Amino acid sequence: MSIPAPLAEIVDDFAAVDGQDKLQLLLEFSRELPPLPPELEEAAMEPVPECQSPLFLSVDAADPGSVTLHFSAPAEAPTTRGFASILHQGLDGLSAEEILGVPDDFYSALGLAAVVSPLRLRGMSAMLARIKRHLRA
Rank of each mutant, 00 (worst) to 15 (best):
S95R: 01
E50W: 02
D63W: 01
L91I: 08
L23M: 10
S58T: 11
L25G: 10
P49V: 00
T80H: 11
A62Q: 14
S95A: 12
L25V: 09
S66N: 10
T80K: 07
H70C: 05
A73M: 02
V48A: 08
S58R: 15
A75N: 08
F29Y: 15
S58K: 13
P78K: 10
T80M: 08
E76D: 15
G90M: 03
F56R: 15
Q89I: 00
P49W: 09
S58W: 12
T79L: 13
V59Q: 12
D63A: 05
E42V: 15
L36A: 13
G90Q: 11
Q89L: 09
G101C: 07
L91E: 09
P35H: 05
L57V: 06
A77N: 01
P78S: 07
I99T: 05
I86H: 07
S85M: 06
D18I: 00
H70L: 03
L27G: 03
V17L: 11
E32T: 12
K22W: 10
P54Q: 12
A43E: 15
A61M: 03
P34W: 06
F29K: 14
I86Q: 03
S30H: 08
A96E: 08
A96M: 02
L55R: 01
A44T: 13
F56K: 13
T68I: 10
P37H: 11
P47M: 07
T79S: 09
Q24D: 13
P74T: 11
A75I: 04
G101V: 02
V17C: 10
G101R: 12
L23K: 11
V67I: 13
L94S: 02
G65P: 05
P35Q: 12
E76Q: 13
S95K: 08
F71I: 11
P35M: 02
H88K: 07
L26G: 11
A44Q: 13
D104T: 00
L23V: 07
D104W: 00
D18E: 13
P54E: 12
K22F: 03
L25T: 09
A62W: 03
A44I: 00
D18A: 14
E39P: 06
S95G: 15
E42C: 05
S66V: 03
A43S: 15
L91A: 10
V102T: 09
L33C: 06
A43C: 06
F83H: 08
E46F: 00
L91Y: 08
P35F: 02
E42Q: 15
K22R: 15
G65H: 09
L57W: 02
A96T: 10
D92L: 02
V48N: 04
L26W: 13
L40N: 03
L87M: 11
P74M: 04
A43Y: 02
T68R: 15
E97K: 14
T80F: 09
A84K: 10
L87H: 02
L27Q: 07
Q52Y: 01
P74A: 07
G65C: 04
L26P: 09
L40I: 13
A44R: 13
D92E: 01
P64D: 05
P34H: 05
Q24T: 14
A73C: 09
D21S: 12
L91Q: 03
E98C: 01
S66W: 01
A43I: 10
F83Q: 12
V59S: 11
L40W: 08
G90D: 08
H70E: 11
L57P: 10
V48T: 07
L55S: 06
S95W: 04
H88W: 13
E98Y: 00
L33F: 01
P103Y: 07
L27M: 14
A75L: 06
P34R: 04
L57Q: 08
